[in-house]
Amino acid sequence: MGAHGMILFGHGARDARWAEPFERLAAKLAAARGDSGPVGLAFLELMTPDLPAAVAAQVAAGCDTITVIPVFFGQGGHVRRDLPQIVAQCETAHPGVRIRCAGAVGEDDAVLDAVVRYCLETGAA
Rank of each mutant, 00 (worst) to 15 (best):
His4Val: 04
Arg24Asp: 09
Val59Ile: 14
Phe72Val: 14
Ile7Ser: 00
Leu120Met: 15
Leu41Glu: 00
Gly10Asn: 07
Ala125Tyr: 13
Met6Thr: 12
Gly12Arg: 01
Pro38Gln: 06
Asp113His: 05
Ile99Trp: 04
Ile86Glu: 00
Thr92Gly: 12
Gly74Trp: 14
Glu107Asp: 15
Ala32Trp: 05
Ala16Arg: 14
Ala16Ile: 11
Leu44Val: 08
Ala26Cys: 05
Pro95Ile: 09
Leu112Arg: 10
Arg117Gln: 12
Met6Asp: 04
Ala88Leu: 06
Tyr118Arg: 12
Leu46His: 04
Ile66Cys: 06
Leu44Ala: 10
Thr48Cys: 09
Phe43Pro: 02
Ala88Ser: 10
His11Cys: 08
Met6Ser: 07
His4Ile: 07
Arg33Met: 02
Glu23His: 06
Val59His: 13
Ala54Val: 02
Cys119Asn: 11
Ala60Pro: 11
Ile66Ser: 03
Val115Gln: 06
Ala57Leu: 11
Gly123Glu: 12
Ala110Lys: 14
Arg100Tyr: 11
Gln58Asp: 07
Gly37Met: 01
Gly103Leu: 15
Leu8Ser: 02
Ala56Lys: 11
Cys63Lys: 02
Asp64His: 14
Phe72Trp: 12
Phe73Gln: 11
Leu112Thr: 04
Leu29Met: 12
Ile69Ser: 13
Arg33Lys: 09
Val68Gly: 05
Ala125Leu: 15
Val71Asn: 05
Ser36Gly: 15
Thr92Met: 12
Ala3Met: 13
Arg100Pro: 06
Arg80Gln: 07
Glu121Val: 02
Gly74Ser: 15
Val87Pro: 00
Leu25Glu: 05
Ala42Thr: 01
Cys63His: 06
Ala3Thr: 14
Glu20Pro: 08
Gln85Lys: 11
Ala60Met: 14
Gly34Val: 10
Cys119Ile: 13
Pro95Thr: 07
Met6Gln: 11
Val87Phe: 00
Arg100Phe: 12
His94Val: 03
Gly5Pro: 06
Glu45Ala: 05
Cys63Ile: 07
Leu83Met: 09
Val87Asn: 00
Gln85Pro: 01
Leu112Lys: 10
Gly106Tyr: 01
Gly12Tyr: 05
Thr48Glu: 15
Pro21Asp: 09
Ala124Asp: 13
Asp64Val: 15
Ala56Met: 08
Val68Lys: 00
Pro52Leu: 09
Val115Ala: 07
His4Arg: 09
